[in-house]
Design a protein around this nucleic acid. Structure first.
Lengths: 237, 237
DNA sequence: GTCTATATGAAGATAGAC
DNA sequence: GTCTATCTTCATATAGAC
């Protein structure tokens, strides 16, 4: 029952896309460790993750990891914090009165789906934390996210008053958007198996986007039929 | 960072609903252990779970647990097997040519939502296994579940030919049903926080069902508007 | 800052009394 | 079958050389 995390080509690259020889000074060891931690924690959760494995993924001795983050718990919290920062901002700009509901929701869902494809570990890490009770992100959930949904409610209300959108139960409507889009990260293994593949390919994410938009057409009065490629959004963060 | 599992009143009750004094012979210690294991594994995954904690939840000494299941891994596999048995059968009967799409999907979704409310640990356990790679349920996913979706495809095809349902990408459509319904178990903490509660109450599950059916109305040509209570289905298994 | 070696404690598994 | 005590392994964390 081993479940080793593979070191991907991605993890050997710096943020700016350049490769660096191993001897040269890495600008930020911290962020390398966090990348590795993200992967391992997203697979096994806090208590199931092993510092040992995190160290192996970022090719550092275990003691080195603990030099930067004195304890496993601090490392976990740092990993969570880093992603909570960028979690909302990304897709959010599209839910705005400046856009029509169909266009806004399309772009929103598109951004979320792209995120699930490019950064599945982040979504899985979030799910892990939820499954284990969410104690580490309590404030984020009950304050930040709650207020966030309240902001969205205002936009939806405007859209409805304009007659561009049907009435919905806003929080539950958002739950549907989140669950449908994140499932392409969290349930990726399951989806791939059903589709007869080892892992999902890009067109699967496109099909997912199409299917979501088909369902959303029931609440948008301006629902178009053409759905663009899932990929035009810039790389997250 | 403790995340102890509370012993619920439910877990002190036998399957048939009767309470038994602690001294009397329990008909099936095995199933009590599996109940406890389900809870703990669903919170922490395989590697994160502690036999110690499982033992505490079912109020047995650790050695006793290991008497029934010689290793942690065997216990985990037994826990998975037990739920895979009943996983599909439950809601599935409703996707059938004998029903209209709206009614069939309503009952299907309803059954899934009720399951998320009554047995959230099962859904979470499944998610845990997916997050850690799904190695233990490979065959279930790529054979049983895949064939299952193929069967559903036939029913959807009939519905479409009858003009009762719009064309959908069947596997992705099922992905949406699964993710939306299971999220009421897996993301329960998040949803509750957004709604300003400690945990979800029954009406939240009803609201979820309503919202899902509102979205599904875009693919059912016979979509009604009234949605009954989420609760008329018999207790799962 | 980097890393080897090791102390300390936790967790899986077993021996063996009852 | 049940349970206490214990063996052994493995993981977190630290000490201290480089």
């Amino acid at each position: 029952m081993s479940n080793r995390i593979q070191k991907t080509a991605d993890s050997m690259r710096q943020k700016d896309g350049t490769d660096r020889a191993s001897g040269s000074l890495r600008r930020n060891t911290t962020s390398h460790i966090l990348d590795a931690a993200e992967k391992v924690f997203s697979c096994h959760g806090f208590s199931g993750a092993r510092i040992d494995e995190i160290a192996r993924v970022c090719e550092l001795p275990k003691a080195n990891v603990l030099y930067y983050f004195s304890t496993k718990e601090k490392l976990y919290q740092a990993t969570l914090e880093r992603f909570l920062d960028g979690w909302l901002a990304d897709a959010d700009v599209w839910i705005s009165e400046k856009h029509s509901p169909y266009e806004g929701l399309l772009k929103y869902v598109q951004a979320k789906i792209v995120f699930s494809r490019r950064k599945p570990e982040v979504s899985r890490l979030f799910m892990q934390e939820l499954l284990s009770g969410g104690g580490q992100i309590e404030d984020f959930l009950s304050i930040t996210l709650k207020e966030h949904v309240e902001r969205l409610s205002h936009v939806f209300k405007v859209w409805q008053e304009r007659g561009e959108m049907k009435a919905v139960n806003v929080p539950h409507f958002m739950f549907m958007l989140w669950s449908m889009t994140q499932s392409y990260a969290d349930m990726q293994v399951q989806f791939a198996a059903v589709l007869g593949r080892k892992k999902l390919i890009k067109s699967d994410f496109d099909d997912g986007l199409q299917t979501i938009m088909q369902l959303l057409s029931s609440v948008c009065t301006d629902a178009g039929t053409s759905v663009p490629e899932a990929d035009r959004t810039p790389a997250p963060r």
